[in-house]
Design a protein around this nucleic acid. Structure first.
Length: 805
RNA sequence: GCCGAAGUGGCGGAACUGGUAGACGCCCAGGACUUAAAAUCCUGUGUUCAGCAAUGGACGUACGGGUUCGAUUCCCGUCUUCGGCACCA
């Protein structure tokens, strides 16, 4: 019989479906294991081999864990709201729903053809009203908790297109000749900053890759500093700045405020007013990108006003510059050009004084000195002296001095901003809010609030979403009077913020999730997905989870216990797969040509899961050969019937090889090192062929450990050797620790660190025996002759090393 | 610029905690089977030098140093690639 993967794979996929093999029951007595993929956006371009990598890894884990006796939850769903379907709708008039449904069908077909063991009864779709009802419900809770609010936010506004642009779109539109301005617009914002401390602190307990944790830490960007108030002699107000270096206050020689600072115009003196106004106008015309983007020469304008340095009593000129960010700290800074490169640059540009207050190894007039581990100098007045102190003490002393004199206070700041949550789009969850004529707001509590049918998907002329064009949906009246609905929809992140919970209880109509089921299944034990979600998705989801925790909906502080980022698969040309490069390897092509088992194995054999690695179509041939070899163990060349298995004892060496293989495969699978697990199975199969062994134990062991990786061929062969139940229900074999070591070992002999020979010795030989044997090795003798051995090193079972003179 | 990861044959990669570098696979070459091909099997395959050969020596894990009997592995410095952040005071 020949190995025909297409027949076999279809047969077993149908079998699993018919027998509900992968349906996970709740509340089983077994320990649970929840292994989750980052669910995909069902795009029109279909899946390519890169998408399948993470899914294959999670599927192997799911099957392995089942085999180890766990009750496994392994679901899949669709993150189906999103821009591409809407843009397609604008172009063609096809309803995004139709597009989405078609794409989902094709995605699902591919995933099923891969033989993934998802529990499809738990399939969810973020665009399903039964699902987004609860997304909206969470929004209402956020609103109740004061975590959702409306705010004027600076957005990129395109006058011609009457729409808000994402930062990524700005450059492109300008190139097309449009003007883009920064303009404040009322937007829904989520107060993620209220959770900044917890989001930072709870990272500690997570089994996540360090780089992801680090990225989140940087993104949250906690800093400890001091707000300092500077007296403005000609005004009644004070100017408040934020600094993390109060230890350098004596070196502050000027202040800078952002162009949007409320005092910017007020501080302009008559002679400077025109210049100031002009500068502010220029700044608003710049986009975020132009202002913060690639390093340019700093620009600025003097207001004409002065502020008093509370430490020195000297007047400091106040400048306006767009290098100071409005939205961070107080929107104003004190400049210490000697010890901050940005301030130094600005000082050089406008010829402002530079004063050394941290002992520097070079002249600070020529080069900035930013190190923190030197001591303060020139830093004293009649009340306080920082001279000779290092950063920590100087910081503390100055902060306390400022606080006792009511000149400032300690302040913790975060880089993290609140999350702009509204989109002027059609294809998203409507925000369930009603606006009344008197400007008041009420919640729409009758959920789900569904999307109306529209005829055109273009944004309205006012820059609102297409929903603003649908009067029968937009306007209504209730007991509080006539209202107009919120026309903004939620961003794509919303649906993916909590989907991992819904898999646990997908059909629940009365609750987001049943608490008992939640307690049983949460947390997600293993979450696999791409590194591109290291910050946003994972931060937003953690935020919502903490909100749900505060609401008592979930029982744990964090959703994802262990995270694993699979590395990207590049095209055969070693470049990122993309349509424009034409190097995309579509999943369906390789599936058709090589079959699911080969694709699954090859995806994993390519290299370490976390690594970026190129696809190589030649390589998959090797995997196909391996599968044929496995097949021929049962169906030798031209045999019509399965080979008869025997109960004869295996040769000792093969027995040890088998136990070694089981050990390596279980450990490597546990640690997601699938590439080396496969290599080990190859060695075992080669050995079985070489010895011609047909021992039942050996063959069955092989089939069981191969099953998580190549489930179809495993099922087929399992049946062929006389079983009538799925190999899936077989427990993963255990190994005998006494049999995983060879009985005879090759011992290396080194002379002065260089390998000079080897010899064979029984395992666990005595050190003395090994020494004696080593000295008898011919190739070693000539390097020892005429030399004095000054040291003899023996590593049992490994090597003997001589140091000679 | 800052943070993080990595650099090993022609190629993808392997190597436990400092102990025989190159497992496994691809490619390539030679051979067996075959009328032939496919498939399969066997052998070889880091570089280099000596030798007809068996074999033996030197070099070799980005580069330069160091620690050690011994370094892909630890330490210092340099370079390159990738990912993230990018005036956050």
């Amino acid at each position: 019989m020949k190995y025909e993967f297409s027949t076999i794979e279809k047969k077993w996929q149908a079998y699993w479906e018919k027998h509900n093999t992968f349906i996970s029951g709740d509340n089983a007595d077994k320990p649970k294991y929840y292994v989750l993929d980052m669910f995909p956006y069902p795009s029109g371009t279909g899946l390519h081999v890169g998408h399948l990598e993470g899914y294959t890894a999670s599927d192997i884990t799911a099957r392995y864990k089942r085999s180890c006796g766990y009750n496994v939850l392994h679901p899949m769903g669709w993150d189906a709201f999103g821009l591409p379907a809407e843009q397609f709708a604008i172009k063609t008039g096809t309803h995004p729903k139709t597009t989405t449904e078609n794409n989902i069908r094709s995605f699902k077909e591919t995933l099923q053809a891969m033989g993934f063991s998802y529990d499809w009864q738990r399939e969810i779709n973020t665009t399903d009203p039964g699902y987004f009802k609860w997304t909206q419900w969470i929004f209402l809770k956020l609103y109740d908790m004061g975590l959702a609010y409306m705010s004027e936010v600076d957005v990129n506004w395109c006058e011609e297109l009457k729409t808000v642009l994402a930062n990524e779109e700005v450059e492109e539109k300008i190139a097309e000749g449009h003007t883009v301005v920064r303009r404040p617009l009322r937007q829904w914002v989520l107060k993620i900053t209220a959770y900044a401390d917890r989001l930072l602190a709870d990272l500690e307990e997570l089994e996540w890759p360090d780089n992801v944790k680090q990225m989140q830490r940087n993104w949250i960007g906690r800093s400890e500093g001091v707000n300092i108030d500077f007296e403005l002699p000609c005004h009644k107000q004070k100017l408040r700045v934020y600094t993390t270096r109060p230890d350098t206050l004596f070196g502050a020689t000027y202040l800078v405020i952002s162009p949007e600072h409320p005092l910017a115009k007020k501080l302009a003196t008559a002679t400077q007013l025109i210049l100031v106004k002009d500068y502010i106008r220029q700044a608003t015309l710049k986009t975020e990108l132009e202002r913060t983007g690639l390093q340019k020469e700093k620009t600025g304008v003097f207001t004409g006003s002065y502020a008093i340095n509370p430490a020195t009593g000297k007047p400091l000129p106040v400048w306006i510059s767009d290098f100071v960010l409005t939205s961070y700290g107080t929107g104003a800074i004190m400049s210490v050009p000697a010890h901050d490169s940005r301030d130094w640059e600005f000082a050089k540009q406008y010829d402002l004084p530079i004063i050394e207050v941290i002992k520097s190894p070079h002249n600070v007039q020529e080069k900035v000195f930013e190190d923190k581990d030197s001591v303060c100098v020139n830093s004293s007045n009649s009340e306080i002296s920082l001279d000779g102190l290092k950063f920590c003490d100087a910081f503390e002393n100055m902060a306390s001095w400022l606080e006792t004199h009511k000149l400032g206070e300690r302040k913790v700041n975060f880089k993290l901003r609140d999350w702009i949550f509204s989109r002027q789009r059609y294809w998203g969850e409507p925000i369930p809010i009603k606006h009344y004529d008197d400007g008041s707001i009420r919640l729409e509590t009758s959920l789900p609030l569904v999307l109306p049918e529209v005829e055109a998907y273009h944004p309205s002329s006012t820059g609102e979403s297409p929903l603003a064009n649908i009067p029968h949906w937009l306007f209504g009246t209730d007991e509080h009077g006539p209202f107009r609905r919120e026309t903004n929809t939620m961003p794509q992140w919303a649906g993916s913020c909590w989907y991992y919970l819904r898999f646990i209880d997908p059909d629940n109509n009365v609750q987001l999730i049943d608490p008992e089921k939640e307690r049983y299944w949460m947390n997600v034990d293993l979450y696999i997905g791409g590194a591109e979600h290291a910050v946003l998705h994972l931060l937003y989801a953690r935020f919502w989870h903490k909100v749900l925790f505060d609401l008592g909906v979930v029982s744990s502080k964090e959703p994802f216990k262990k995270l694993f980022n699979q590395g990207m698969i590049l095209g055969e040309d070693n470049e990122k797969m993309s349509k424009s490069r034409g190097n995309v390897i579509p999943a369906d092509h390789v599936l058709e040509r090589y079959g699911a088992d080969a694709v699954r194995l090859y995806e994993m054999f390519l290299g370490p899961l976390e690594q970026v690695k190129p696809w190589n179509t030649n390589g998959i041939e090797g995997i196909s050969r391996f599968l044929s070899k496995v097949w021929r163990l049962i169906y030798p060349e031209n045999a019509m019937q399965a080979a008869l298995l025997t109960d004869e004892e295996m040769p000792d060496e093969l027995l040890r090889r088998m136990h070694k293989t089981v050990k390596k495969v279980s450990e490597d699978t546990e640690n997601l090192k699938f590439n080396t697990a496969i290599a080990e199975m190859m060695i075992f199969v080669n050995e079985l062929h070489k010895t011609g062994c047909k021992n039942r134990n050996a063959i069955e062991t092989l089939i069981i450990i191969l099953a998580p990786y190549a489930p179809h061929i495993a099922e087929e062969l399992w049946e062929a050797i006389g079983h009538n139940s799925s190999v899936n229900s077989r427990p993963f074999p255990l190994f005998d620790p006494n049999l995983v070591e060879d009985s005879l070992l090759t011992i290396a002999v080194q002379v002065n660190g260089k390998l000079r020979g080897t010899f064979i010795a029984p395992a666990k030989s005595q050190k003395e025996t090994l020494l004696t044997e080593a000295k008898k090795v011919k190739s070693v003798i000539k390097f020892l002759e005429g030399q004095t051995i000054v040291r003899e090193i023996v590593i049992p079972d490994k090597l003997v090393s001589f140091a000679v003179k």
